[in-house]
Amino acid sequence: MSVPVPGQPVLTMSNVGVCFSRRRGLFDQQKIWAVRDVSLDVRHGETLGVIGRNGVGKSTVLRVMAGIINPDSGVLKNYGGYSVSLLALQVGFLSYLTGRENIFLSGMLLGMGRAEISGKLDEIVAFSELDEVIDYPVKTYSLGMKARLGFAISFHADPDVLLIDEVLGVGDAQFRAKSTTAMRGKILSNRTAVLVSHNLEMIGEMCDRVVWLENGTTRALGATDDVLREYVRQVKGRAAPVPAG
């Protein structure tokens, strides 16, 4: 891994397209391009926001960045083997295992080594606020407890580039506030992050730059204020009431 220099690119996507094929019959295949032509770059230490309407391919773009799927056209370049991963909650959880065992399983799936997890174990348990319940099977947990454990594990995974799809915090009001604050702190620090959200206020507050996707293409990429202003104007224009005819 090379030494990170703030402002230098970590990842670039050039003319990336992703197509899914849907089988309709024995020889009939329909191709759907979820992403057509997206170009962007992610730089060291910055937070890049991704905005756009539902179904423009924001999540697919994140999955390409995370190396989960290959682009069908265009190129993804990683400048120096940086680990890039989605903030994925409750990955690989087995409900018959205890919370503690799931920390190891899920943590290893998220790329952490066993020793690293052992080192962070107390911290993860404390963050999840599960106390002695951590040694009960996860199937006895409430949804909220499971969400807290899932968040605590993913929060401690620390990839070089963190990709977040909408979810900043989870759980009940109190834990949601705590987890959101912690995640905000992490993103606002020097961490490189990509944040997909429909919450424009949050994007405005946390992102250095924003990319606006439309129809699977890059509509705009630039400083947060400029792109958001443009986006809001366009969305408002579209939502303007049509006079009754």
Partner: peptide, 13 residues
């Protein structure tokens, strides 16, 4: 390590 641990976890489950 992951192969072994996941196999162990599935057996335990």
């Amino acid at each position: 390590q992951l192969v072994l641990f996941k196999a162990y976890a599935e057996l335990r489950a």
